[in-house]
Design a protein around this nucleic acid. Structure first.
Length: 875
RNA sequence: GCGGGCGUGGAGGAAUUGGUAUACUCAAGGCACUUAAAAUGCCUCGGCUUCGGCCAUGCGGGUUCAAAUCCCGCCGCCCGCACCA
């Protein structure tokens, strides 16, 4: 009666083929059922899949299979984020064509994904480097250009000297390029921008509608957009000190209420007034140059002390003609925020205070805490930034700062300065426009032709796509498209004269900013003939559940939100503005690190032994002891990687999937351990044994819930588990669903062992419970579920069966066990009918021995009864 | 510096959102089966205890009949932003 062990190597390919043959996962657009679009962030085809992919795609697959089982028409596609610099680096280092390298990687990784048993619709697969994909992107670019959402302009931009390209603001992390890690330099270049700032307010407002997004991500985006309300205020220059042709200085401030605490003006080194003043002041010119050289990297900024240079220019206070203030060039003022100029109020801003103390400028407190004394309140070396009451501020004295803001703003709005109001309210954003030009080859060509007579001319729709040439070389630095002998030389579409193609390609984040929309069209069946791609009729958007890493909290997720709006504005989609209704950010896969004398060592190379509670790691080959290091994200550099192929080969995909879902909450990091994987595999075998026993013992038994006798406990647990597991999966609480499955199996196994004593009702209950178990493991371990279903004589595929229904009556107990507390301490339990009323519960509780004993004869003051929860007798 | 999060057994974690703290898994120990091992099954597993209990959710207070959960103050980790006026 010994059963064979479950053999995933034989079983998994068999069921993968069965699913494929059945066409179950090939989603139809004309399906009457309600749609559900589940998507995981598509991979970059770097070469091989890693454990992070396994975790990400397993979670998405559980959702997809579950949603299918509860009756939705599910779209669950996969594609490739295929443009990017690694392909060019491979081309340079290994003399392979980037296209060949990329498509070869896609083939490998697709094969790997297939061994995971994911319920993906491969009919909709594409790579972003397919011309059939990027031609749409080029059309969108030209449409967005017409709509004023794209712009070419000269700007100070971030230049990555290693990757030899410019970068967007979001791609500079701590002053370094996000991919190369090189210190970013500032360069003045003419580049293409997506005007994401034109939608700043809308992108901010939209966050409020995303109730199925993590608060953390919404907060990060909100901070990144960085809205602030303030006043744009023009200060008159003292004519005696103003350089020729200058008469005013405009600043931006969020604290107009502190205007009587102003003691200096500070402007950026690149401010026009600073440049003007420097013309006749070589010392100032030298100071400006020094600031420009420094102050780009974050590390320098952190230690940089406040430095300034008095230009000799003075401004006139807007409320007092006789009061003038000095204008400094200061290293802490940024040219590209606000107006590049501020007024310094030392008492209300720490930087201004540091600066004032260094240069001996006045410090006048203008806001003090409500209960402080205006006569004695002083600011020495710590600025006061909290709420309070206005002092030393003439007509503002006694006001709250918020009212003082209003008072100053409304007075200056009405004050005329040379024919215009002296001040205007202004909403300012931190967000910058998205710089998308990249001086690289392996990306989507920017479809623009530069003509000396016509300027920048978009490539006409009928000439799209602008395809990348194949014959490029990587033997010298710089952009291969620029070096290509013929590609860039074209005729102007407008005048027919000689002209040049734009040789830059788009930031690859543009490719991933709309791919979710592309999946909605099964173009492998019906290649669309028009470039005016509209999702409206299909209604797939928005994505109902999006799953991916937190590292895209700003970059990809913000760009996609912008792009969707821009697509809507240009008619490329017409349904939604928010692309992702539900977002889930999963944690990383982490692993211990090991280090020997030769450096980092992979987990596969070592053996771990445990003795006297101490773990020792040694190299399998040489026996050399290696140090067990900290637990970190799996990475090639630390070599703490486990290859998904190895795991699938030795344990099967279901074990890998199940382990990924167990233990750790999905939004936290999961620690990959050999012991944990073996635990998951034990469960696989345990389920298989249980099903095999059931197949024998319950052959021919019809499933039915039992209401009484031994079987009732089984039916109750089974129905409760169905309810709970469904709810857990809906909430993506996979670890809790897994725990419930363990509990069910732990309960069923002994009953099956004792099957000879079971009556007919219990057998029917067991049969039902076993069938429910198979259905419930199916989203997580789909191959095992199919094998089990076949084993117990089920017909068809589990993958096409419905999620089991539970009987609500069986999920509640008639009798419940209430904990009974005396004075808040638990003293025992009370078993009572679930629907017992309050007085019955009180009476029953008081009658309990342990309650009487604990009361010591005292009369209870109060009895707290929380229905179906707890009883507390207070003496 | 600003913003956010977290802290529960040897480890990962659970606790129906204020109501039985430690579910489930891993690790450890013991036993059974076995010639032996593996596999499997069963048992123990926060601390102290005079066996009545008492004390335990980073530390110290508070609110409450009742606190891992709420409030105040510390400590320690983690993440994001960073001279944004």
């Amino acid at each position: 009666m010994a059963t064979e062990r479950y053999n995933p190597r034989a079983s998994e390919p068999k069921w993968q083929k069965a699913w494929n043959d059945s066409g179950l996962f090939a989603t139809k657009n004309d399906d009457a059922r309600e749609k559900y679009y589940v998507l995981e962030m598509f991979p970059y085809p770097s070469g091989r899949i890693h454990m992070g992919h396994v975790r990400n795609y397993t979670m998405g697959d559980v959702v997809a299979r579950y949603k299918r089982a509860v009756g939705y028409n599910v779209l669950h596609p996969m594609g490739w984020d295929a443009f990017g610099l690694p392909a060019e680096n491979a081309a340079r280092d290994n003399k392979v064509n980037p296209r060949d390298w990329t498509y070869a990687n896609i083939e490998t990784m697709k094969g790997q994904l297939k061994t995971m048993g994911l319920s993906l619709d491969w009919d909709r697969e594409f790579a972003t480097c397919d011309p059939s994909y990027y031609k749409h992107q080029q059309k969108m670019f030209t449409d967005m250009l017409k709509a004023g959402l794209v712009e070419r302009r000269a700007a100070k931009v971030n230049w990555d000297p290693v990757d030899m390209t410019v970068l967007a603001n979001e791609q500079v992390i701590d002053g370094r390029g996000w991919r190369s890690g090189a210190l970013v330099e500032q360069r003045d270049l003419t580049q293409w921008f997506f005007k994401i700032t034109s939608m700043a307010q809308d992108l901010l407002d939209g966050l409020d509608t995303l109730d199925r997004w993590p608060d953390k991500v919404k907060l990060m985006q909100s901070n990144w957009i960085g809205r602030s309300e303030g006043l744009q205020l023009r200060w008159k220059l003292d004519p005696a000190t103003a350089p020729d042709g200058t008469s005013e200085l405009e600043v931006y401030t969020t604290r107009p209420d502190t205007i009587f605490g102003a003691s200096f003006m500070a402007i950026a080194a690149d401010h026009p007034l600073a440049k003007k003043a420097a013309e006749k002041n070589p010392e100032l010119a030298a100071f400006n140059d020094e600031i420009r050289r420094r102050g780009t990297s974050a590390a320098e900024l952190e230690t940089a002390e406040k430095k300034g240079f008095d230009t000799g220019i003075r401004v006139v206070h807007p409320f007092d003609e006789s009061w003038t203030l000095p204008v400094y060039v200061a290293n802490f003022v940024l040219m590209d925020y606000g107006t590049g100029a501020i007024f310094g109020c030392p008492s209300g801003d720490q930087r201004d205070l540091d600066f004032a103390n260094k240069y001996g400028l006045p410090v006048v407190p203008v806001v003090m805490p409500k209960d402080a004394d205006a006569a004695t309140f002083q600011i020495i070396d710590e600025a006061y930034t909290d709420d309070g009451v206005m002092i030393h501020s003439r007509f503002l004295d006694g006001m709250a700062p918020k009212d003082a803001f209003e008072e100053v703003a409304s007075r200056l709005e009405k004050t005329d300065l040379r024919g215009r109001p002296q001040a205007a309210r202004k909403v300012q954003f931190r967000l910058r426009d998205w710089l998308i030009s990249r001086q690289r080859y392996w990306g989507c060509p920017i479809p623009v032709i530069h003509c000396d007579s016509c300027g920048s001319v978009p490539v006409p729709a009928e000439q799209l796509p602008v395809e990348l040439p194949n014959d490029v070389t990587f033997d010298r630095p710089g952009n291969p498209l620029d070096h290509h002998p013929t590609w860039k030389h074209v005729k102007c579409p407008s005048c027919g004269g000689d002209a040049r193609r734009d040789t830059d390609t788009m930031d690859t984040f543009a490719d991933s900013s709309w791919y979710f929309a592309r999946f909605t069209d099964p173009w492998n069946e019906t290649q669309p003939t028009t470039l005016d791609y509209v999702d409206g009729a299909k209604g797939w958007l928005a994505v109902d559940q999006y799953i991916g890493g937190i590292e895209h909290a700003i970059l990809h997720l913000l760009y996609s939100r912008f792009f969707t709006r821009a697509m809507k504005a240009t008619g490329h989609v017409n349904v939604v503005e928010e692309p992702f209704q539900g977002l889930f950010t999963q944690g990383m896969v982490v692993h211990e690190t090991y280090r020997g004398v030769q450096g980092w060592v992979t987990p596969a190379e070592i053996r771990i032994e445990e003795a006297d509670g101490k773990r020792r790691a040694t190299l399998i080959d040489t026996g050399e002891e290696v140090a067990i290091g900290s637990i970190e994200k799996m990475s090639k550099s630390k070599k703490n990687v486990v290859d998904p192929d190895d795991i699938i080969a030795s344990y099967g995909a279901d074990t890998a999937r199940f382990f990924m879902l167990s233990d750790s909450p999905p939004d936290r990091d999961v620690i990959w351990t050999e012991a944990g994987v073996e635990g998951a595999h034990r469960f696989v075998q345990r389920v298989w044994r249980l099903i095999s026993e059931a197949a024998e013992a319950l052959s021919g038994v019809a499933p039915a819930a039992a209401r009484e006798g031994e079987g009732a406990a089984i039916s109750k647990l089974a129905h409760k588990t169905v309810k709970a597991v469904g709810e857990d999966i809906e909430r993506l609480a996979f670890n809790k669903a897994v725990a419930r499955l363990y509990e069910l199996v732990n309960a069923l196994a002994p009953r099956l062992q004792a099957i000879s004593a079971a009556d007919a009702a219990e057998k029917a209950a067991l049969r039902e419970a076993v069938e429910m178990l198979v259905a419930m493991i199916a989203p997580m371990m789909p191959h095992l579920a199919e094998e089990c279903w076949a084993q117990i004589g089920g017909r068809g595929l589990v993958a096409e069966r419905s999620w089991p229904a539970f009987d609500a009556a069986l999920t509640v107990d008639d009798e419940i066990v209430l904990p009974v507390q005396v004075n808040g301490k638990k003293r025992g339990d009370l078993t009572i009918a679930r629907d017992a009323d309050q007085s019955a519960v009180e009476a029953a509780a008081l009658a309990l021995d342990f309650v009487q004993k604990a009361l010591e004869g005292k009369t209870p003051r109060k009895i707290v009864v929380v229905p179906q929860r707890i009883v507390n007798v207070v003496a």
